[in-house]
Simulated assay, not measured.
Amino acid sequence: AVYGVFFMNFRLEDMPHKLRTDIVLSDRDTHEQFSDKLRFIFIELPSFRKEEEECVTDFERWIYVLKNMETLNRMPFKARKSVFEKLEKIVDIASLSKEERMKYDESIKVYRDSLVTMEFAEQKGRAEGLAEGMAKGMAKGKAEGKAEGKAEERRIIAGQLKRMGMSFDAIREVTGLSDSEIDKL
């Protein structure tokens, strides 16, 4: 769904005065809803009348800050909510000089580049580890398969020699199998 959120620092005369109004589009002729994936939300800031100490939810805190941003000389709720510290930093960034802003933007670029580099290294490490693990697993499986194949081959030969009437001592010497293994054949 696509939402358009509009903050109005005024009241529309033709609308009921309420803080939040959700609007959906409909066809003018048929009055059928145009789409359930497109909505508009209007926030009428003058309808919000709470004071700082009355704000309980994050939504109320955001609306308070937006409504009073021009008159605030400190950010409210700062001690209780880190989200407002982030908002205060954004406001501080907007007041940087051109040179300070360029330095800030460069530091952000370096930070983001390092995150991308670390993520790439982590993915590469995982891929290399997976490849190494698969190679070791395949080598171990191959070795076990060869050993099992050789053991099976010795049992087949021992069975053939036993059917030919060869003694257990001779079969044991040729195949390396124990008397109990030869007896089971």
Score class of each variant (00 low, 15 high):
V5F: 11
F6A: 04
F6W: 03
N9S: 12
R11L: 15
D14M: 12
P16Y: 00
P16T: 08
H17A: 06
L19Y: 01
L19N: 06
R20L: 02
I23V: 07
V24H: 11
R28I: 06
F42V: 03
I43T: 06
E51A: 07
E52Q: 00
E53Q: 02
V56Y: 12
T57Y: 06
T57L: 06
F59A: 07
F59D: 11
V65L: 04
N68G: 08
L72A: 06
N73W: 09
R74P: 03
R74E: 15
M75F: 10
K78S: 09
A79V: 07
R80K: 14
K81A: 13
V83C: 01
F84T: 08
L87D: 01
D92F: 02
S95L: 06
S97W: 04
S97M: 01
S97L: 00
K98N: 08
E99G: 03
R101G: 11
K103S: 07
Y104G: 03
D105H: 05
D105P: 13
D105G: 12
S107A: 03
S114T: 10
S114D: 12
L115D: 03
V116Y: 15
F120H: 13
G125V: 02
R126T: 09
K136T: 04
K136W: 01
E144S: 14
E144K: 15
A147R: 05
A147I: 10
E148M: 09
E148T: 13
K150N: 10
R155T: 11
A158N: 12
L161H: 00
R163W: 08
I171D: 13
I171H: 03
R172I: 14
T175P: 15
L177C: 11
I182G: 07
D183W: 08
